[in-house]
Every structure is written in C-alpha cells, then in structure tokens.
C-alpha cells in the first residue's frame, strides 16, 4: 500500500514530498488522476496542478470530478493511472460525493492493486478511518453544510490526520481533547509536511506531531 498524505501549503513547500511520491510511483513519467473535492472551478486548480507536476517531469493527467455525472470511459481511465490525487477542499462535501458515487471502494481497490494514492488536506483526511479531524478546531473547521452523519472514511491507515497544524496552544488543546477519546493517534502536520506510507511503513516528511490519549509528542 502506497500513500502520501500532504498537509497543505504552497506547491513549492511540498517539493520534497513530491519527490518521495515519484519514488513511490517508481516509473518514468507516471500518470496522475486529479480528483477535486468539488468540481466548481476545478479546471483552474487542475491546470495549476498540471503546471506544478509538469515541472517534475510528469505529462499525463486525468481530471476526474466526482460531484458531477461522468461517463464510464473517463472513470475507467482514471483508475488506470499510476497515481490518484485527492485534492483539498471541504471534507464533508468530498466524502459525500465519493460515497454517493461508490468511489471509496474503488479507491481502496486501486490502492490494493498497487496504485499510489495521495491526498492533500481533505484528500489526506479521507484516507484515514474517519473524517473527524475536519470538525475541529472551532476556529478552523470545515462546515458540514450537507449534514453528513456517517464520518467513516477509507480506513487505509491506523491513524487520524490533522492538516494545517500550527504549533500553538489553541490547536494543541483541541487536539489533546479529541485524542482522549480515540484509540489511535492523530498525526498533526503543518503545511509543507506530510506522511508517506510505503508498503505499510510510515515515514514523516517535515515536522510532525502525534496526539495520543491526551498527550502530545513531536515525532519528526
């Protein structure tokens, strides 16, 4: 199982994670499918995405929004790519549409087949057991406008992911509070850092903190 979880930030902040991703793909000119969290204006984000990865030598891309109707041909093509990237955005909205279109299962099968799945912020949270980390802290949470109750996500890893983390008291107190009720750690990463999962092994890129049963530990 090969995954890359990006916290967020500007593209140039994520260059080292990108290089790790290309190592994982282990292929000259791998193809990438870009799944936006929301199709609204996603062609603009898609073009930015292309420009960034083109500079890293990738030239084959598929744009596959899931909150609109799509044909089987583009779906089939998307899942034939080497890497699938889940973009950032509203985690609840993204989960709703991935689930509605049966994509959670498809993505898990893709990972099982050896495909590399990457996600940024919301996209990364979706790889974990649940999207509960999207719901706090109060001052920086996603709005659950669609009132999604079932927060179960892909459960590809045994930790929760907290993106855009800032090493501050107000973030820490929220994370400590939430970690008390969980039997798995929450890994909190500031923008520019992230987690690489290669064949079940975790590697941390950049700063990363673990919040587990009420305690905070710096792990990288």
């Amino acid at each position: 199982m090969n995954l890359v979880l990006y916290s967020g930030g500007f593209e140039k902040e994520n260059i080292s994670l990108d290089r790790k991703l290309l190592e994982l793909a282990d292929k000259e000119n791998p193809s990438i499918t870009y799944i936006p969290s929301c199709s609204y204006d996603s062609e603009i984000d898609f073009n930015d995405f292309i420009r960034h990865y083109r500079a890293l030598g990738i030239s084959r891309f598929i744009h596959f929004p899931v909150d609109i109707d799509f044909d089987e041909t583009i779906k089939k093509e998307a899942f034939l790519s080497d890497i699938i990237h889940l973009s950032g955005g509203n985690t609840y909205y993204f989960l709703k549409h991935l689930r509605r279109k049966g994509m959670l299962k498809e993505l898990k099968a893709f990972v099982k087949r050896g495909g590399v799945l990457t996600g940024l912020s919301a996209g990364a949270i979706l790889m974990t057991p649940s999207i509960c980390t999207a719901g706090f802290p109060e001052f920086d949470k996603d709005e659950n406008e669609d009132n999604i109750k079932n927060l179960k996500a892909m459960n590809l890893v045994r930790f929760e992911f907290f993106p855009h983390y800032r090493n501050s008291k107000r973030y820490d107190s929220e994370l400590i509070k939430h970690s008390k009720g969980l039997d798995r750690p929450i890994y909190a990463c500031p923008d520019g850092s992230g987690i690489i999962v290669k064949e079940g092994t975790l590697a941390f890129e950049g700063k990363c903190f673990s919040f587990f049963q009420g305690k905070k530990v710096k792990i990288n």
Binding site: S31, S59, R60, F61, I62, H63, D71, T73, I74, E77, L80, S81
Partner: peptide, 10 residues
C-alpha cells in the same frame, strides 16, 4: 474535454 486527456494517457 475528455479526448485529449485519454489520448495523452494511453
């Protein structure tokens, strides 16, 4: 919209 993506991919 879709054809160039798939042609390039395949």
């Amino acid at each position: 919209r879709e054809l160039p993506q798939i042609l390039l991919h395949r």
